[in-house]
């Protein structure tokens, strides 16, 4: 008998799509993560090319100073639903902070320490993923968020998010 895993069987996080990256450039981290996501079939083969193109044209860095000046910045790289197979948030801790341009002020460069990569093949269907990420960042205490951003073990990151990220 063949069992298939449907996306409704998991929440926004899965333990084999949480990463800690030593990449030194945006291209490196995208290639590293995309490779792993293709291997687990969470994204399609052409995901990498499209996520890079999108980031270059419509950057996704988010300045977290409006939430707290004590938080590092994050980015939410993503691409259109046709290049992904799941509805997931893929957390990526960046051991080396990387430059991303600000989503709202694209001319501005931000130093980013953590990615919430969004795989979304169903934008209409359920509660907005980006809104849930922003609520998590706005409603979790700064101390707890900084604990998360300092973790360098994917399983600890996964555990933290399962316990603290309220999923709609």
């Amino acid at each position: 008998m063949v069992f298939s895993i449907s996306s409704s069987n998991h929440g926004l996080f899965v333990s084999d799509a949480v990463f800690v990256s030593n990449a030194k450039t945006q291209d490196e981290v995208f290639a590293e993560v995309a490779d792993k996501l293709v291997a687990t079939n969470y994204v399609k083969d052409d995901f990498l090319a499209h996520v890079k193109e999108r980031e270059a044209n419509y950057p996704t860095g988010i300045d977290l100073t409006p939430i707290s000046t004590e938080l590092p910045n994050v980015a939410i790289p993503h691409t259109e639903g046709e290049y992904v197979n799941e509805r997931l948030v893929v957390p990526v801790k960046l051991a080396n902070p990387l430059k991303f341009h600000n989503m709202i002020v694209p001319d501005e460069e931000l130093e980013v320490k953590f990615l919430f990569m969004i795989l979304n093949n169903d934008p209409e269907g359920q509660a907005n993923i980006l809104a849930q990420i922003m609520d998590f960042l706005g409603q979790t205490s700064v101390d707890d968020l900084n604990k998360l951003f300092q973790m360098d073990d994917p399983s600890a990151i996964y555990q933290f998010l399962m316990e603290n990220f309220k999923q709609a």
Binding site: Y58, I76, H78, N120, P123, N128, L130, M134
Partner: peptide, 16 residues
Amino acid sequence: ACGAGVNSSHQIKDAV
């Protein structure tokens, strides 16, 4: 409107 038409634009749509 946003880059991918998937996340930010839908969040703005819902909120507005």
